[in-house]
């Protein structure tokens, strides 16, 4: 459904005297419903690319289209709106609001979206069940394991039924087994809901789940290959 299209994306950072290349004329098209991994060594530009797609940061040059949005042309407010309604984010650290329970964390985003209270509650519970957290709805983030917290983050990301989920190193803080469970969840959501996943990682096990693997180095795309995904379910 949702397609992502990047044309000639450039982004440089300035750190004192030094000019650091984040993205160097990146061209990339991602079809709706695909499951893509961005790989590459540290500093290769994965996060920069994800942020550009998600409208968190604007590129210096080039065009990005996400679904019907011309991301590079949107105002800050429009970008915030787009993120809120059409994109789900999962970050490396779980980034939950520590004083809110699992359910409240999910509900909070829905409230910001303007959903009426009764609907919020039932949907939050439904989404949390979907990520396998039934019974833990009232737990505070501090009382949950890393994997559980990351599931809450996923629940929060898909609560608004986005067409696209951007995940930046989602498994970096998880042990192997938990990481595998999270990836299985992503694959399931991708299959059942048709959500497009773009995952930045340098975890080789994660890359294994992807059907398309985009490799970066120094802000350039150096390889782009289709592959058989081998999730645990298969």
């Amino acid at each position: 459904m949702s397609a992502i299209s990047c044309r000639n994306l450039c982004k440089t950072f300035r750190q004192g005297e030094e000019v650091i290349t984040g993205l160097d004329h990146v061209n990339l098209d991602i079809e709706g419903g695909s499951f893509v991994c961005l790989s590459g060594p540290s500093g290769s530009g994965k996060t920069t690319l994800l942020n550009a797609m998600g409208g968190l940061d604007t590129p210096d040059e080039g065009e990005i289209t996400v679904g019907e949005y011309r991301v590079d042309r949107l105002s800050k407010g429009e970008l915030a709106d787009m993120r809120l309604r059409s994109i789900g984010f999962v970050f490396q650290s779980y980034n939950l609001i520590p004083v809110l329970s699992a359910r409240e964390n999910v509900e909070f985003v829905m409230q910001v979206q303007g959903l009426p209270a009764p609907e919020r509650r039932s949907r939050a519970e439904q989404v949390l069940a979907e990520v396998g957290l039934s019974g833990l709805e009232e737990r505070l983030p501090g009382d949950m394991s890393g994997g559980q917290q990351q599931r809450v983050a996923v629940a929060r990301a898909i609560a608004n039924q986005p067409a696209l989920v951007l995940a930046d190193e989602p498994t970096a803080n998880l042990d192997t087994r938990t990481a595998a469970q999270l990836m299985d969840l992503f694959v399931a959501l991708n299959r059942e809901r048709g959500i497009t996943f773009v995952i930045a990682t340098h975890d080789v096990r994660v890359m294994g789940y992807a059907r398309r693997l985009v490799s970066m180095r120094d802000g350039l795309i150096v390889a782009d290959e289709q592959q058989e995904s081998h999730s645990m379910e298969v």
Binding site: G77, R83, L84, N95, V112, R156
Partner: peptide
């Protein structure tokens, strides 16, 4: 600041 950054990333407005 970090927490607010995440909230902004999720699509909240500074006014909120």
């Amino acid at each position: 600041t970090r927490e607010f950054g995440v909230m902004l990333a999720l699509g909240m407005r500074p006014a909120q």
